[in-house]
Amino acid sequence: MKPTVRFFQPHDNVSILMRTFSVLILFILTIQVSKAAELDYNLIAEPVVEGTYVFVGSTKYFSKQNGGNIVNTAYIVTNAGVVVIDTGPSYRYGKQMRDYIESTTGLSIIKVFITHHHPDHFLGNQAFNDVPIASLSGVINGIKLQGNAFTDNLYALIGDWMKETEAYIPTEVIVPGKFSIGGHEIEIIALDGHTDSDMVIYDHTTGVLFPGDLVFHNRTPAVANANIQHWLDSISKLQELNYKYMVPGHGAVISDEHAMIQTRDYLSWLHKHLQNALDRGLAMSEALTLELPASFQSLDILHEEYKRAVLQLYPDMEQNYFN
């Protein structure tokens, strides 16, 4: 049955209509204003060691609620100025991060490092367009190739938070090795596995290791562009380093191997599990709905990230199965 529609007759009081209308407009305006005011990442840095700070993000997935703040970004205060590691998921994040750093340290930013080409790690670059933004050539190529697609995707996922964000390509190619900056001995290590090019930053002066997304802590690793065997090899190399603290790409700062072991165990399980599903003749939609072991339940967004892993890895594994 169609609902009855009631039209206002000409003799209805026009002023009531007008009043309702203006109240409605006022209401919409209030919503818009409060919405704009809400888009604040409320960034507060936590110290790792003296002079090294991290903005710890959520361990969830991108959402309109968290504005994509699901990532750890960091900075090191040196004698020569501040060195920034990763710029976050949006121009807005980059600006708020920069404001916070400059107002709390009173120093200017002299260098930005980008660990890898994923959008949550570099889309704040625009806020640092007057500073050299450095990364490995592989990371820069990745941003050139996929940066725009990632940006479009984040507009779809987090909406207004992305306003005016563009994929700003790093301006300086860096080669692996040791160098000194503002009294800190910094080592750049080129690894891969989470993506085709993962840049690890190791501060020998403070003993703080920044492994980027090669390490996830209490958060299910994301494997969109992963080569799992390479990733496992990279973790073995990280385990040889003599660090005091590690700032993982996602999850809390940690001083022991626990996060690396978590990441390693999940990845090797995932690989075997999917290979086993293929060997049993399961279709991709069947692999999506398999039970997951209890031992990984402590990893945040396990089921969500597992499903994404199937969608991302299974097609290629299927193709290779018959090659």
Partner: peptide
Amino acid sequence: VVVPDVAEDPMNVPVS
């Protein structure tokens, strides 16, 4: 009909 909630890779959406 089983499809994922989110396509992830729009070129390869599994369905059964």
